[in-house]
Design a protein around this nucleic acid. Structure first.
Length: 780
DNA sequence: ATCCTCCCCTAC
DNA sequence: TAAGGTAGGGGAGGAT
């Protein structure tokens, strides 16, 4: 109704001062840096430069991004010929280089040193001195060649005439435009709506933690039937955004999808209520929808706008409660127990959101999450609905089982076969029958939900279990090299997300979709068609986030499966068994500081410290940041205070894990609290402390070394024992150090950030001992 | 019994 | 033309 309101750019509502307060901390920091640079009047070193980072680099992808933004440059996660001016890369395979250079306007591929040197020089240096020339072949490339397929096979080269990989299932050779879509990871992710909504969740963490800093009200603890849970859901989100961008669509049947071809197979992701009246639904091909509704209007995606609207929704929700559980970009729960009247809060949320975005949101409220969500479904469109305890049973009675969240296509079909169409049908059977058919947990869930019972608590933060990236569209490989290239791309994507979520993982899973032997051509343009899904995983000795390692392992798994690459229709990588990386991406940026203060501390205060400092062969930067911080904290503690020092050093020889809680534990148990200010009459440092400090630095070094060896072994051989026997053969000193480190880790499992496989460590230890015994006649 | 791997199902 | 991802829950069945 207020068209101006609808069309205004609410993505970044600068007019609304409070918005900034809700921006996530990182964005805010970058903005401040950006502003500061502008005030400086320099205009930015990298003005006009937009980089895309390829592969594993030092500094990392994330750091380069921050630096570019800080110094006035641009950054693209995905390569775009039109926007990217330089590709930043530490080393590049021939294949990748060719891929970039064959573009119409080749983009220079430059070493990250160019960025670092330019920043150091405070001006944009000529990049030509940093262009990558020497190309290193990936070590696994020749090893992992699979046997060549017979000549004349589908998709193979024939008579020297170049043919394209999509020549399958009787299709003619594809045109150039189609060829550009094949196996194209970058453009796929840039345009995929499912990728967009799927990877959105990773973003919300930042928004939530920023909002938590503002101390929103916390819900009160109440009886389970007296809880007040609300559920909010933006009405046909993508379609509504399209209407708000183009007000002439108001009141028309609108469908959001990629193509407006009335014959095509573009999938509708969202449609307006006017379109729904004709039976148009999300997931339909546009062509099919057009038959149902000839007046259907096509609308494009506006991915950036969705982010903005979503941020507004979450900001509003977090004004009413700190306990908000994100479900998706347009949907969330909030626990508002004891914080006000549910319906009036719902109304305020709805009107506030509409005022700010021009979009409508529907809300549901009840005493549990299940009923709140069902209430929202009842409320749509543009309404609010409340289900009270007394009426909940009545309400569930008529509800089709398909409407129970968690009961989808398969389960509802199964239930229908068992004669259960509505929740009341379920009541007449027993929980045991459901558990027999669906398994104990799922059976119980259906039983409980069908009665309107749900004891879940609204969880505002959840620990991530998996990180992955996959593509099941436009995948047509002619050779294993194609598959390897795609896996390398996917690994980069996975690395990015691991970095973003401050995690590493120990288990790598390769997921494949393989064309079924009798599959007809896919109905969908470049779709995967009928497929078998298979997956294989490998668990490494330590957690990794390096795309090179991930790619290598994924390629190894592909090799292990031994599939015909031409049959692959979908491919993906998943990382599980995640470990949190403390300090996350920031660790490398603060590393120089730690290093510097460590140096200063040793120079200024403690001449003797130099003697016991790590030897020059081991760079401090090679020691894990947590170890460094621990060492530093010890040095500082030592400088400050003798009594305090005792506290910190108590576990120095065994507890250099970098975990804070260890530091604060009192070993002697004498009960003295660490005093902030030392008395002048404290005893001088004892040499025992010196020794322990020395030992802990050594230990950190050993541990680092063994971690490195284990991860190298994991990346290459996967058999630590073999790796060790090959690398350390005849090197007594190395064997000794390794043995020491392995024992250290075995004595303190769990004390180190990198997890070890016990049996492998044990085997390695035995092997080393044996080797020493045989070759040197001694025991270690 | 408990864990692990390889699935399937579901939701957005 | 068209961009069929991502993550969690959980079950079957084998290994330990």
């Amino acid at each position: 109704m207020e068209l101006k309101d609808n069309t205004r750019d609410w993505v970044i509502p600068e007019h609304n001062g409070s918005f900034r307060a809700y921006m996530n901390a990182k964005q805010e920091k970058l903005r401040v840096q950006f502003e500061r640079r502008k005030v400086g009047g320099e205009g930015g070193i990298f003005k006009g430069v937009t980089i895309h980072v390829n592969g594993y680099t030092k500094p990392s992808h994330t750091e380069l991004k921050e630096l570019m933004i800080q110094w006035g440059g641009g950054f693209e996660n995905y390569f775009s010929n039109t926007r990217v001016t330089h590709i930043i890369c530490s080393n590049l395979t021939d294949a990748k280089l060719k891929q970039y250079q064959k573009e119409r306007n080749p983009v220079p591929v430059v070493h990250p040193d160019w960025i670092m040197e330019s920043i150091r020089a405070k001006r944009l240096l000529d990049f030509s001195g940093f262009v990558l020339q020497r190309i290193r072949l990936e070590p696994n490339q020749k090893v992992l060649q699979l046997p060549r397929r017979p000549r004349g096979a589908v998709g193979d080269r024939q008579g020297g005439k170049p043919s394209c990989s999509a020549q399958v299932e009787g299709r003619p050779s594809p045109g150039k435009r189609e060829r550009d879509l094949l196996n194209n990871v970058d453009s796929f992710f840039k345009n995929s709506r499912l990728h967009f909504i799927g990877s959105w969740k990773a973003n919300i963490d930042a928004v939530m933690s920023a909002a938590a800093a503002l101390n929103p009200p916390r819900p009160k603890r109440v009886q389970s039937t007296e809880r007040q849970i609300i559920h909010v859901d933006i009405d046909c989100f993508f379609a509504s955004v399209a209407v708000s961008v183009d007000p002439s669509l108001e009141g028309k049947p609108v469908a959001v999808c990629h193509s407006d071809s009335s014959k095509g197979t573009a999938e509708i992701s969202s449609c307006s209520y006017e379109a729904r009246k004709f039976g148009v639904k999300a997931g339909m091909y546009f062509s099919a929808a057009k038959e149902l509704c000839p007046g259907l209007v096509h609308a494009p995606y506006y991915f950036e706008k969705y982010q903005g609207a979503s941020a507004v929704l979450y900001r509003i929700l977090l004004q009413y409660s700190a306990c908000v559980q994100p479900v998706s970009i347009d949907e969330a729960y909030a626990d508002i127990s004891g914080l006000g009247d549910s319906l009036s809060i719902c109304d305020r949320i709805r009107s506030q959101f509409h005022k700010e975005t021009g979009l409508r949101v529907s809300t549901g409220a009840s005493h549990n999450m299940l009923l709140a969500k069902i209430a929202t479904n009842q409320a749509k469109p543009d309404g609010t609905f409340f289900i009270r305890v007394e009426t909940s049973k009545e309400f569930m009675k008529e509800l089709p089982v398909k409407e129970i969240p968690g009961v989808g296509y398969k389960s509802s079909k199964k239930l229908a076969e068992m004669g259960m169409l509505h929740c009341s049908d379920v009541w007449l059977r027993s929980k045991q029958i459901l558990q027999q058919a669906f398994g104990s947990k799922t059976g119980e869930l259906i039983w409980e939900y069908s009665h309107g019972r749900d004891s879940r608590a609204v969880k505002s933060e959840a620990k991530r279990q998996t990180v992955g990236a996959e593509i099941n569209w436009g995948i047509r490989f002619t050779s294993n090299q194609d598959a390897i290239k795609t896996l390398e791309k996917l690994s980069e994507e996975v690395q990015r997300r691991l970095e973003q979520s401050h995690t590493k993982g120990r288990s790598i899973t390769l997921k494949l979709k393989l064309r079924k032997p009798n599959a007809p051509p896919p109905s969908k343009f470049l779709g995967h068609g009928w497929c078998d899904n298979i997956s294989r995983s490998i668990t490494l000795a330590c957690s990794v986030d390096d795309n090179a390692v991930i790619a290598k392992e994924a390629v190894g798994l592909l090799f292990k499966l031994g599939v015909d690459p031409r049959e692959i229709r979908g491919i993906g990588i998943q990382i599980t068994k995640l470990d949190e990386v403390q300090m996350g991406a920031r660790k490398r940026t603060i590393q120089p500081d730690v290093q510097e203060s460590l140096k200063q501390a040793s120079r200024k205060r403690e001449p003797r410290l130099k003697e016991i400092a790590p030897d020059e062969n081991v760079r401090l930067s090679d020691i894990d940041i947590n170890e460094q911080k621990y060492i530093l904290s010890m040095i500082k503690a030592r400088e400050r205070e003798q009594s305090k020092r005792k506290l910190f050093f108590a576990q120095a020889s065994g507890g250099h894990s970098g975990r804070q809680r260890k530091h604060t534990r009192q070993a002697g148990g004498s009960g003295n609290e660490p005093r902030p200010d030392p008395g002048p009459d404290l005893p001088p440092p004892v040499s025992e402390a010196e020794r322990k400090l020395h030992r802990s630095i050594d230990s950190a070094r050993y541990v680092f070394e063994v971690c490195e060896i284990i991860s190298a072994a994991a990346a290459e051989e996967k058999a630590l024992v073999r790796y060790v026997s090959e690398r350390a053969e005849g090197d007594l000193e190395k064997l000794g150090r390794l043995l020491k480190a392995i024992r250290l880790v075995r004595r303190n499992p769990g004390a180190y950030q990198v997890k070890m496989v016990g049996s492998e460590l044990e085997a390695a230890e035995v092997l080393i001992q044996k080797s020493v015994e045989q070759n040197y006649g001694g025991v270690m």
